[in-house]
């Protein structure tokens, strides 16, 4: 039997989708907060959200989120390689998301490098990195939404 696994039975299996969902929400919100739109479109006028117009604060949140994301990526990748690989396999939709996520992470790493004091990229490269970070993020969000509606998970149980 092949079954798409959206919720695992182990402790991490239950916690991971939650953690991932919250993290994705935080990264999307703080990421959109890097565009000058929250003030224009009244988001920061919503009571309790005035802070969302502070670019430095949302930037800090985005960085902290990226730290959690990288730790999670390290954990999930090695957990899969060391053990889970025998029980589960990546679905097609999981593979698409993984590729888009890799795009976000790689361009994100370059953005972090660009922000270091001694790193200067060429104007063309800076443009490509900045715009592709946005592009991968948009593509990921659309893909994640589509797969959510279609009920496709990241992994499926292997049949023995």
């Amino acid at each position: 039997m092949r079954r798409t696994e959206t919720r695992g039975k182990t402790k991490d299996g239950r916690a991971l989708p939650w953690l991932w969902g919250i993290l994705l929400g935080v990264m999307a919100f703080s990421g959109f907060g890097q565009l000058p739109i929250f003030k224009r479109y009244y988001i920061s006028d919503i009571p309790g959200l005035a802070w969302s117009a502070d670019f430095y604060l949302t930037h800090r949140i985005h960085y902290v989120g990226a730290i959690v994301l990288l730790a999670l990526a390290g954990y999930v990748a090695f957990d899969y390689l060391l053990g889970n690989r025998r029980h589960v396999r990546l679905t097609g939709s999981g593979f698409v998301r993984l590729c888009l996520l890799a795009g976000i992470v790689i361009t994100g790493v370059f953005r972090v490098l660009k922000n270091l004091p001694d790193v200067v990229f060429s104007p063309g490269f800076t443009l490509v990195v900045d715009i592709s970070h946005l592009g991968f993020m948009m593509a990921y969000l659309f893909a994640a939404l589509a797969f959510l509606i279609m009920g496709r998970g990241w992994v499926e149980q292997k049949s023995f």
């Binding site: 994301l69 730790a71 390290g74 954990y75």
Partner: peptide, 8 residues
């Protein structure tokens, strides 16, 4: 961060 994740 990723090293910590791998260690876990």
């Amino acid at each position: 961060a990723p090293v910590a994740g791998v260690a876990a």
